[in-house]
């Protein structure tokens, strides 16, 4: 057996923001993230955001697909099948980064094909080698990624920030 501990740098400290030219990446901690699936979920939550919709405030929903939303800081809901909806708490399953600054979109364009001219009903996309939920929040961008991919995503963002000068 081989000890690969030294081949992998310890996970980064997400508590300290990343700074680059015209852009800052910060980890944020939503109080709650809830996956809700239902055949009529977009009727129930018509305001669920796609791309390039702009979220405001603390509480909003993201459209993931035609039958699924991710509710951010919504009411506490019992997990399971209730009222025709499948509900799961995913608060700790997704790591959330906020990208602020004039070069925020330029940073994201390093990792995924995205343009404000190309709308999408869903905020889900592949980027930086992982699954992302990417959307605009006020004048910033936010992305949610699988928690265990957080260190790799942070590493890639930092590498791109270094390149951007």
């Amino acid at each position: 057996m081989r000890d690969d501990s030294q081949s992998w740098a310890p996970p980064p400290d997400h508590s300290q923001p990343l700074h680059g030219a015209g852009v800052t990446v910060t980890r944020i901690l939503p109080v709650r993230q809830t996956l809700i699936s239902a055949p009529d979920i977009l009727t129930r939550q018509p305001a669920a955001l796609g791309w390039p919709d702009v979220a405001t405030g603390d509480r909003y929903s993201l459209c993931l697909r035609r039958d699924r939303v991710l509710e951010i800081n919504g009411p506490e809901r019992a997990a399971g099948w209730h009222d025709g909806q499948a509900i799961s708490d995913i608060t700790d399953g997704l790591i959330v980064f906020e990208i602020a600054g004039a070069a925020a979109l330029a940073l994201i364009q390093r990792g995924t094909e995205i343009s404000e001219r190309q709308p999408s009903r869903s905020v889900q996309r592949l980027g930086f080698g992982t699954e992302l939920m990417l959307y605009r929040w006020e004048d910033r961008l936010r992305l949610h990624a699988p928690r265990a991919d957080g260190p790799a995503l942070w590493h890639r963002l930092k590498a791109h920030l270094d390149l951007m000068g």
């Binding site: 996956l35 699936s37 239902a38 039958d67 699924r68 099948w81 499948a86 799961s88 708490d89 995913i90 608060t91 700790d92 399953g93 997704l94 699988p146 928690r147 265990a148």
Partner: peptide
Amino acid sequence: FVHDTTQH
């Protein structure tokens, strides 16, 4: 409906 909650 299928929800992957592994990483939560």
